[in-house]
Design a protein around this nucleic acid. Structure first.
Lengths: 214, 214
DNA sequence: CGCATAGTTGCACGTCGTGCAAGAATTAAT
DNA sequence: ATTAATTCTTGCACGACGTGCAACTATGCG
């Protein structure tokens, strides 16, 4: 969102190449199927060498989804504001992680089409989040620590609570993505469809279940 | 657990080979590190051809963990009893999935050592479960349908509730496994450490959080 | 014993992913 | 403008992964 120098040529080119590879990958997969597409083919259409492909993405699937792991990691370091509801805040955080794919905001129809055709790629997204679980629960735990309602508890308790909260959010996000993938009319990112709504539904559901079991 | 014929020689040999490969894999990984071990090396120690390795496990990691996908899938088809608590039942179900590794009950120290050394393999376990999510939530939803407290709801509502319940359970299992992996004294399977205890802790935690947010 | 079935093995082939070093492009400095 | 430093691209070589196929071997069964 901000760069001291006026965005050098190098940086622009890098972004451009990354985009080209991502789009080439997604298009080819939609045309010929995930397994039929090789990294050679993607590289050829994107006009880079095979070797360069691996300078941008570690695998075919990452390229297809346009995953930018460093952007995602950077997202975690950004200060995020906590408005008093850990579920909602965690939901937003996960949302941000999913969207962390460089600058491209366009072309997300491509992404959705791919995800609809190959749902197991969604699992891959979840894995990414799961891999960051330690850092995520750390962040949530810190929110709790700053919350007067939880400040009195022990560090360990808050960590445990954080993990549970994340578990619930992940389940919610998963449902949210499934709906998004099967919806044909929606625009924007996978989760842009009003996180607040999905979130509230889930929490209500959860409360209902717990209530009935009491 | 049961076979009509007196367990033919073939079946025994198969189990034996599977074990040999699994153990060879785990031992080698502990000795030389995950990346340093090749499938060739595993096959050699297990006294089978490389080609045979792939007749038993689709990948190195699966061999290291001794994952038996057909056993896991079969586990889902078994009728399971539902005693009125969907969380506990779901927890047990996931537990069964993790343990679905053929017949070997011994040698689980090996598995724990490996998991302790390479925590990302735990993520892989979670992925397996996530991949089965549709079938799992179906099962949980059916439990709810048979439960008078949930019988009045719509099918769709129960499915959503099922997914949330699973999300909570997964988060709990994850914590449970982390503890198990870092505990040096425990024996038995990864989750054998009294599922009920972990479960109750989690539910209590969850109730607490929701209570404070009310 | 002899047939049917299931499991093992070697071979060939294509894909994946990485280290390395030479060369080209961008940037910064003089 | 020229040069020097940095970064990026590319080709090459290499090992590992994973699968289809066909020949061979072992087990099960009548």
């Amino acid at each position: 969102m901000s760069t001291s120098p006026p965005v050098g040529l190098r940086e622009r080119k890098r972004e451009q190449t990354s985009q080209a590879i991502h789009i080439a990958a997604a298009e080819l997969v939609l045309e010929h199927g995930l397994d039929a597409v090789t990294i050679d083919a993607i590289s050829e259409r994107a006009d880079v060498s095979t070797r360069t492909f691996f300078n941008y993405f570690p695998s075919k699937e990452d390229a297809v989804l346009g995953i930018d792991e460093v952007a995602a990691s950077a997202e975690l370091d950004k200060p995020r504001d906590y408005a008093g509801d850990p579920f909602l805040a965690a939901f937003d955080l996960i949302h941000a992680l999913f969207e962390a794919s460089g600058a491209q905001r366009t072309k997300s129809e491509l992404k959705r089409d791919v995800l609809r055709k190959y749902p197991h790629l969604m699992v891959r997204q979840m894995v990414r989040v799961a891999a960051l679980e330690d850092r995520l629960s750390e962040i949530v735990a810190r929110w709790l620590a700053s919350d007067e309602r939880f400040a009195a508890e022990t560090e360990a308790d808050r960590l445990e609570e954080a993990r549970i909260i994340l578990g619930v959010c992940l389940a919610t996000v998963r449902m949210s993505m499934k709906k998004w993938a099967s919806d044909t009319s929606q625009t924007g990112g996978p989760l842009s469809a009003d996180p607040r709504t999905s979130y509230e539904r889930s929490i209500t559901t959860l409360r209902t279940v717990l209530e009935k079991l009491k």
